[in-house]
Simulated assay, not measured.
Amino acid sequence: MKHLLVTLLLSTPALAETCPPSSDITTELNALIEDANAAQDERSGRAVSDKMWMVWLRAPDASAQEVLDRGMRQRGNFDFVGAYESFDALVAYCPDYAEGYNQRAFISFLREDFAAALIDLERALDLSPDHVGAQSGRALTLMNLGRRAEARTQLEAALENNPWLSERHLLADGAPLGPEGEEL
């Protein structure tokens, strides 16, 4: 694994340098959270969600963007091993960039390594507390770990930031995170 990380780091010329600090996206994200909460319909809400992703997927520099984009392509091609290695290299290069952790967590989630996913999601949220994608990912991960009450609380927090998440349906009656019925 270390050999692959070194290869990935060296295959992107500027990656041997230090990653610049991530931009402060707080103001931009807060405005999008307001827009999401003001959206009148699903179509408008989804458009705001897409804008949120554009913010999170903006890497700190061109080298980091190249690695992020490569990992996204690998994931899209179901090369989860390659994608994980790319996101692992991204996290090593830019340890303060929340999206690197979020994307690596998603690969762990897809591989059903929920414990590893949870660690990365918690780091992403430490770096970017209102990252709706990481919030909803953490809710899904907790649900898969059988931690239903925590998952419900996390999903409710995500929905405060974006009420149009598709995961909102998990809170409906009879859904996996919906209200618990009375015992017979």
Rank of each mutant, 00 (worst) to 15 (best):
L4C: 09
Q65W: 12
W164Y: 13
E66W: 06
N30P: 02
L110I: 07
G146Q: 00
A36N: 05
A172Q: 15
L8W: 14
G45N: 10
E112F: 00
D96G: 12
R104I: 03
L15V: 05
L171P: 07
L57F: 13
A89C: 09
T12M: 06
A62E: 07
L177S: 01
S108L: 02
G45V: 06
L159G: 04
D79V: 07
W56F: 14
A115I: 02
L29H: 07
G137P: 01
L140F: 00
F80Q: 03
A98T: 08
R46P: 02
A172D: 14
E42W: 10
L118W: 00
G71P: 07
L171T: 09
R75Q: 15
A175S: 06
N30R: 15
M72L: 15
Q74C: 06
Q40M: 14
A59R: 09
T141L: 05
D35L: 07
D69Y: 15
A47N: 10
D24M: 14
R138H: 04
E17Y: 05
P179K: 05
E66H: 12
T7H: 08
E156K: 03
A158L: 09
K2Y: 08
W53F: 14
A92I: 11
L125A: 04
A117F: 00
E122N: 14
V67T: 11
D50I: 03
F109P: 01
D35Y: 03
D120A: 11
A62Q: 15
G71S: 08
I25S: 15
P95I: 15
R148S: 04
A83V: 07
A47C: 11
A31D: 13
W56I: 15
L8C: 08
V48I: 13
Q135V: 07
L177G: 02
W53H: 12
T26P: 03
E160M: 09
D88I: 06
L155W: 04
G174L: 09
Q135H: 06
A149K: 00
G100Q: 08
D96F: 14
R43S: 12
R58L: 15
L90Q: 09
A117Q: 04
L90Y: 09
F109Y: 05
Q65K: 12
L177Y: 08
G181A: 05
N77D: 04
F78N: 11
C94V: 09
F78I: 10
T153C: 03
A62W: 08
E180H: 10
D50P: 06
P176N: 01
D50N: 10
N77V: 11
G76V: 04
Y93D: 03
D113L: 00
R111E: 02
I107Y: 01
H131W: 08
H131S: 15
L177A: 01
S49V: 04
M52Q: 13
P163D: 02
L68W: 06
L57P: 02
V81E: 06
L155Q: 02
A92R: 07
L165D: 02
N30A: 14
L15P: 01
S166V: 09
E17C: 09
D24C: 13
T18E: 02
R70W: 08
P179W: 06
D120G: 03
